[in-house]
Design a protein around this nucleic acid. Structure first.
Lengths: 344, 344
DNA sequence: CTGAAAGCGCTTACAG
DNA sequence: CTGAAAGCGCTTACAG
């Protein structure tokens, strides 16, 4: 090992010898399998501890035929602007995913892609690929890996083992209905320049709603990689929009810019933010939100995924998680709490 | 497999047969080892592709004797409040770590601890444990795993393979010197209720500076797990402090609370924030910062770590990364840009 | 390049 | 429980 020419690592046979039992009994004792007297078991455990024995995971995986690891593909890691914009989101997903996986005895490995060496050298028994685009290369690569795949919203493809869908389409309709109830006539959508399941649903949901209600669509695209936040916000503020569903993490900047222009956020411009439930400041800022519990969503998805991996459920599992709407000052025409606070 | 009773996965021997070469030649062709004619190599690659062959990483690791994976221990995952408070930080570290590792052919596995099954079943050739406390249980467990360990600021322990140190102590002194130059007489420190390398250095650096300059220390502790942000901020605002180094992610809330009280941030209360370089809003808010490039820090640390793992460098590597200070309105007594903007 | 073999460190089934 | 053996799927060294 790197530490130098120290003594060779102890092997299971060394533990068996130390404990005075057979190799098979040592294996059974440590893995908790078969009938082994508690006394023997303890003797083996003690011997293992004494020698500093650590089982070789690769050997275990090879001989038992099961790897207990989930790979999580974050293609956005290769697009710094996008990753940075959504990093609270990624942290929440990685955190929840790691906990969900490890609680069930699985490791959680983050991957920035599936090319070349990685494709080949990382032991995984399942791959998670979220926020996929059409004919997503990561998703295709994941299918090629020969393990079950979890993704969101690709219900058409029967190679998907678990589809954990977030219902953005209904969420958009709910937001637009709320805007209309509040008297807005030109509700708009601000979204990221990304081609993912979520953005497709957002667009579809928005355009459908507009058509059904005879409203002319107003779309504002934020190019995260090019730092296009300011530009998109300015375009919105120059437009006839009197309400906006913000589906990209720029809400605080938007509010600030609007107020700077003298607009009364919540009245002149109604704002609902989506998918930023990771930012606690939004509540303080009195922003209406469409949110969901990332921890619950991920834990449920991972739980079903592991069941599929272990053959306890058939592949092809689908779920549909609704977002929940909370109306606050930013869409209700009341004065924002934050400004009220400034005066006090 | 979970997909059902499909055909057995192709093995290397199947590829060899399909390509009409020997098992050894097939192995060499795919791994790029030894002298193999380009024609044969290609023939094997084609056969592998045709069959959908994916090498078994566990078998590779076992027979070659090398695992290419780094485990990253985030104990904070088991403390939701703490993890949430620092999640932009964690996202940046995980992102940078994943890229740094995978660029060098290593997988990056996130672990919420090292207990039980995890300790045993996750294949890693090295463990990273950052933000450790004294006699840190995760660090001790990592040593017990028998692989090289990367950590920050535990220079005393010669079991550490790579010590990637962030120089918070000098950073504190720099901040305090700046406060003093600006005329502050009661500079204070606000920090999290955590026992880590960073917090120890912060405390030591601050108390030393206070002693050297005959200043009475003023410490404000934020209990992240108990949601103690508001409390700590109120305590600060009631105190005689006229400057504060904020070493916990509550700067925006602090500024807001101070302004609400009618304080002129930057003059009545000078503010420097530390370790929130992940939040772009701080620049917009005109906050002075002590920051470092997480990506550079992590990439350098991982690069050296992998060198040690592969025996290209001896263990015991140490580095010391300085934070860089940027003075902005919040410590310079000028009017904050944000408030100026509100008027315009 | 071939071909046959050993070996990595386990798990697993089996006769006793 | 023991003991000896087979096997997981590769890599590696070796004689030809």
């Amino acid at each position: 090992m790197a530490r130098g020419e120290g003594p060779a690592k102890p092997r299971l046979r060394d533990v068996a010898r130390e404990a005075g039992v057979s190799l098979g009994a040592a294996s059974d004792s440590l893995s908790g399998k078969n009938q082994i007297s508690e006394e023997t078991r303890q003797r083996v455990r003690d011997a293992a501890k004494r020698l500093g024995y650590v089982p070789d995971p690769s050997a275990r995986a090879l001989s038992s035929g099961k790897v207990r690891a989930i790979g999580f593909v974050i293609g956005a890691l290769q697009r710094p602007g996008e990753f940075a914009a959504y990093r609270t989101h990624w942290a929440d997903i990685i955190g929840a995913g790691t906990l969900a996986a490890t609680e069930r005895g699985y490791a959680f490995t983050v991957l920035p892609g599936l090319e070349g060496e990685l494709m080949v050298n990382v032991p995984v028994s399942g791959l998670m690929v979220l926020d996929t685009g059409p004919q997503d290369p990561y998703l295709e690569a994941a299918f090629g890996r020969g393990v079950p795949v979890l993704t969101d919203g690709v219900s058409e493809d029967d190679r998907v083992a678990v589809d954990a869908h977030l219902d953005f389409r209904s969420a958009v309709a709910e937001a637009m209905d709320h805007f209309a109830e509040q008297g807005a006539t030109r509700p708009s959508l601000m979204w990221p320049k990304l081609q993912t399941v979520s953005t497709r649903e957002l667009e579809r949901g928005y355009l459908e709603w507009c058509e059904q209600h005879g409203v002319q669509p107003l779309l504002f695209i934020v190019d995260l990689e090019a730092g296009g936040t300011h530009e998109a916000i300015e375009a919105l503020l120059r437009s006839p929009a009197d309400a906006v569903l913000v589906a990209v993490p720029v809400t605080a900047a938007l509010i600030e810019a609007a107020e700077k222009r003298g607009l009364n956020v919540g009245k002149d411009l109604r704002v609902i933010t989506l998918d930023e439930n990771s930012d606690r400041r939004l509540e303080q800022l009195d922003i209406s939100t469409l949110a969901y519990s990332i921890a619950e969503y991920v834990d449920g998805a991972v739980a079903r995924f592991i069941d599929v991996i272990e053959g306890k459920r058939p592949p092809g599992q689908r779920s549909n998680v609704a977002l929940s709407f909370t109306a606050r000052g930013s869409s209700l025409g009341t004065r924002l709490r934050r400004r009220a606070g400034d005066q006090g």
